[in-house]
Computed example of a mutant assay.
Amino acid sequence: MSKEPKPAGMAEFSFLPDLVPQPMEPSTPVGAEGHRLRMRQRLLKAGPDALADYEMLEMILFIALPRRDTKPLARALLARFRTFGGVLGAPPTELMGVDGIGEAGAAALKLVQAAALRMMRQDIAAQPVLSTWERLTDYLMAAMGHERVEQFRVLFLDGKNKLIADEVQGTGTINHAPAYPREVVRRCLELHASAVILAHNHPSGEPAPSREDVVLTTDIVRAAATMGIAVHDHIIIGRGKWLSFRAEKLF
Rank of each mutant, 00 (worst) to 15 (best):
P5I: 00
A11S: 15
F15W: 10
L19V: 02
V20G: 00
P23A: 14
P26G: 11
T28I: 14
P29T: 06
H35P: 00
Q41W: 14
L43Y: 13
A46Q: 14
A50C: 06
M56C: 11
M56T: 08
E58I: 01
M59Y: 00
P66G: 04
K71F: 08
R80Q: 13
T83D: 10
G86Q: 10
G86L: 11
V87C: 07
G105K: 01
A108I: 09
L109F: 11
M119Y: 04
V129Y: 07
L130H: 13
R135K: 14
D138W: 01
L140F: 08
M141D: 04
A142S: 03
M144D: 01
Q151A: 09
G159V: 12
K162W: 08
E167I: 09
E167T: 01
T173H: 10
I174Y: 12
H176K: 11
H176R: 14
Y180G: 02
Y180M: 14
R182V: 12
A193Y: 04
S194V: 02
H200I: 04
G205W: 06
P207D: 05
I220W: 06
A223N: 08
A224M: 13
I229E: 10
H232L: 15
G238Y: 14
K241F: 07
W242S: 10
L243T: 07
S244W: 04
F245W: 12
L250D: 08
